[in-house]
Design a protein around this nucleic acid. Structure first.
Lengths: 250, 250
DNA sequence: CGGGCTCTTGACACCCATCAAAGTTTGTGG
DNA sequence: CCACAAACTTTGATGGGTGTCAAGAGCCCG
């Protein structure tokens, strides 16, 4: 059980509403539905499995606080993190009937989750009753896929230096959607091992790459807070392009 | 325009029916619907773009013959292939409304395609009229996702040797679903550059890795046909596990 | 105050990319 | 049908990016 600072503490604000509002303007009943979901919450420690490979994907969940990831492990201990799940994001939602999870979902830090079953009803049962919410949920699904492709690009065709820069920029963008990113600063409550497992690098090399970014005065990273000193240069280095997920018309 | 042998020629048999029948037992009207789709076809040369990044994903297509891929390119010429699209498989199907393609789809060989718009109707309009077909289509979507995760595992955490073995096994499994794989042989109409772009390797290194597999008497590969000499050893080397996509109940 | 984790550093080996050039196959046109 | 050109494959040499091993330093928690 790794020790981890919990850097997204405090009363869970309207992270989810704030995030989904980026995709579509939600009306009052839609916001109320979302808030009703986040009333009952559950706290989970770090390193806990939330969904196992093979589990039925019949219940969506909201991650209200803390970080998690989708991953898969090898028999020999290697593991690959497919994508991070950030505060305010959703997991376990799949519109296909009888869908089964192809990956394990585990918390990386202490976390707070809540059952979001009503959102499944919204999408499958009566989307027309919550049109904007349905559109927003579709957008988040599209973003998920975009993040997976980003991962492939990073790992397949970028150097360690480029990879790390690219991931940092993606995390900044996603955190800013829920209001957790400062002007040039983001919370990053991950160990270097977790970053390495996501980027397909060894721990040692990730550490050196991190230092290279520091040495070139591109970032600062201390006690779970990362500062982007020259975001524009990072964008250039990583060839970072924000995803083309179109905001659905109202 | 690369020169490429077209190794999946001849009259397009019931590839699609055969493949989807693996996932659910199709009734006669479902099979008839599928066959009606494949009557009107279009031939496309190699290297042709079928879907561009940003295109609306409102029309599904069937690839009746030839190979294609989903990919993304860098400004400097690097490119990453996300997944191959094999004969009998589908592309451009997305159930989300207003969905937009996040990748480019291009043919790798000469190919034959057909418009599969009716399948979209089946899923969105009246799935209960074609229950088995709908279930089968959901399975193919799940498989697609499994292949993406396979890619990430390969590229992120496997050596070149393991990667290539793993990809070969995945291709064998997929080709056998449409009846294109022999007992221990599969068609592989790809240049080494294409394989390299999929596996995140350089052409030269892919070539050497291929030779290593040959030298260790694991495969033979000549003029577009690959023979798996010791499939079991390949499975061991690559830690290959067939996807957990459950066959939906009838 | 002690014991795990985590981060950092150094040394070293090897996997893989790059550059360059020769060899081979395939398709095309005369 | 042959000859040529283009694309593809193979090979060698070399350098650099990353992984591995090992050990020490820092940090947080009990």
């Amino acid at each position: 059980m790794p020790r981890l600072r919990n850097l997204t503490p405090g009363p869970p604000p309207d992270l989810v509403v704030r995030r989904l509002s980026r995709f579509a303007a939600l009306n009052e009943s839609e916001r109320a539905l979302l808030r009703s979901i986040t009333v009952v919450t559950r706290d989970v420690g770090p390193g806990q499995s939330l969904v196992a490979e093979g589990d039925r994907l019949d219940t969506p969940w909201l991650l209200l606080a803390g970080w998690a990831c989708r991953m898969r492990g090898f028999p020999d201990g290697r593991r690959q993190i497919f994508e991070f799940i950030l505060p305010g994001e959703m997991y376990g939602l799949c519109l296909r009937p009888l869908a089964v999870s192809l990956s394990t979902i585990v918390t990386l830090t202490a976390a707070t989750i809540s059952d979001a079953m009503p959102l499944r009803e919204v999408l499958l049962g009566r989307p027309q009753a919550y049109p904007n919410l349905a559109a927003a949920l579709h957008c988040t699904a599209a973003l998920d896929e975009a993040h997976l492709l980003n991962q492939l690009i990073r790992i397949g065709r970028q150097s360690a230096f480029e990879r790390l820069a690219h991931l940092i920029l993606e995390l900044r963008e996603r955190l800013s959607m829920v209001g957790l990113a400062g002007a040039d600063t983001i919370p990053l409550p991950l160990t270097q091992e977790m970053l390495a497992d996501a980027l397909g690098l060894s721990i040692v090399h990730l550490n050196r790459t991190l230092q290279q970014l520091r040495r070139e005065n591109l970032i600062a990273f201390k006690s779970g807070v990362l500062r982007l000193i020259q975001p524009d240069r990072l964008i250039e280095i990583a060839d970072f392009r924000p995803p083309q997920v179109i905001k659905a018309a109202a």
